[in-house]
């Protein structure tokens, strides 16, 4: 295949592939906790809110990771503060805080007048991944996976039954903010692959697909990571072959996987549900006939 020989020949393509796979994996892993905690909207918020952080980092000449993590965390604290200290509901305070940060980011990026290109932050540009970006993605990926492996038990309990977790002394709030930090890191790592706007899809679509297929969190995490990585590879292939936006194509591949699971999942899929209903109905009519005879 051309794509494989291209990968062997072009370093930029190798970097793009490696980074996309890594992003697919870590988004898949963190995404599981995000959807099980009902925080999909929060994921979207944080990914948008890193924008002003990136702009300010460029102005100050520091690595954009620092600024992004700072505004990402500020957003999650701000959202918590507004919903705890007023009657404004959680989804509304998410909307208020992240759109303000995003708006601020758009202005700051224009003011920064630097080499940053708003479009590539918003939509990603995976073929322009530099070595330094690739290494950063690798470091972020390692941190994320290490934290999830080391604290798997605690993440599981505080996600499934926070009250029980608190009753034996687990710090739920700390765990929440650790997850928010990981979420920000994952967003930053995903900037070049899928961009700010579509990160949320990488977080929730593969995780939701896996959610339809298993009854175990550990299996769900592995499946979700696999779907993320698979979508990254296939998406990159199509975007390269047909010169399409990589982020958009990768996201559409995750959607296709989701639709397949949605229809054919053995337990949850609408196809099997339909078959079961048909079967029960036929069974019922047969039994009815028998009782007539």
């Amino acid at each position: 295949m051309d794509f494989i020989s291209d990968i062997q020949n072009y370093v930029f393509l190798q970097k793009a592939l490696f980074t996309s796979i890594m992003v697919g994996i870590i988004c898949g892993v963190i995404g599981c906790f995000i959807i099980l905690r009902g925080m999909a909207l929060m994921g979207d918020a944080i990914s948008h809110a890193v924008l002003p952080g990136i702009a300010v980092s460029y102005m100050l000449g520091i690595n954009y990771l620092y600024g992004a993590v700072f505004t990402g965390l500020l957003t999650s604290v701000g959202i918590g503060f507004i919903s705890q200290n007023s009657r404004v509901k959680n989804d509304s305070s998410i909307g208020i805080v992240f759109s303000s940060f995003f708006a601020l980011g758009i202005i700051l990026i224009a003011k920064a007048k630097s080499t940053i290109d708003l479009t590539s932050i918003l939509f990603g540009n995976v073929l322009s991944v530099r070595s330094s970006d690739m290494w950063m993605t690798l470091v972020i990926g390692t941190i994320v996976l290490l934290v999830v492996i080391l604290f798997y038990k605690e993440l599981l309990v505080s996600t499934f039954d926070p009250t029980f977790a608190a009753s034996y002394g687990l710090p739920n709030r700390l765990i929440h903010y650790v997850l928010m930090i990981l979420l920000t890191l994952v967003t930053v790592a995903s900037l070049q692959t899928v961009g700010v706007i579509l990160v949320v899809a990488m977080l929730i679509t593969p995780a939701s697909t896996a959610y339809l297929l298993t009854n175990r969190l550990s299996v769900m995490i592995v499946l979700s990571a696999a779907f993320g990585a698979f979508s990254a590879i296939v998406g990159l292939y199509f975007s390269f072959e047909h010169n399409l936006s990589s982020g958009a194509v990768i996201v559409l591949v995750t959607t296709v996987l989701f639709l397949i699971a949605f229809v054919f999942s053995p337990k949850q899929g609408i196809f099997w549900r339909y078959v079961r209903i048909r079967k029960n109905r036929n069974g019922a009519t047969i039994r009815k006939k028998e009782s007539f005879e």
């Binding site: 996600t159 499934f160 039954d161 009753s167 034996y168 959610y211 969190l217």
Partner: peptide, 29 residues
């Protein structure tokens, strides 16, 4: 020394966890 069983309504019954694993959570402390 303390165990707490919350009201049933407080649990997410769709969570991907099996019966055995749920009981195992009791050993985590």
């Amino acid at each position: 020394k303390v165990a707490y069983v919350p009201q049933r309504a407080a649990i997410d019954w769709d969570f991907p966890i099996t019966v055995q694993k749920t009981v195992q959570l009791g050993t985590y402390p």
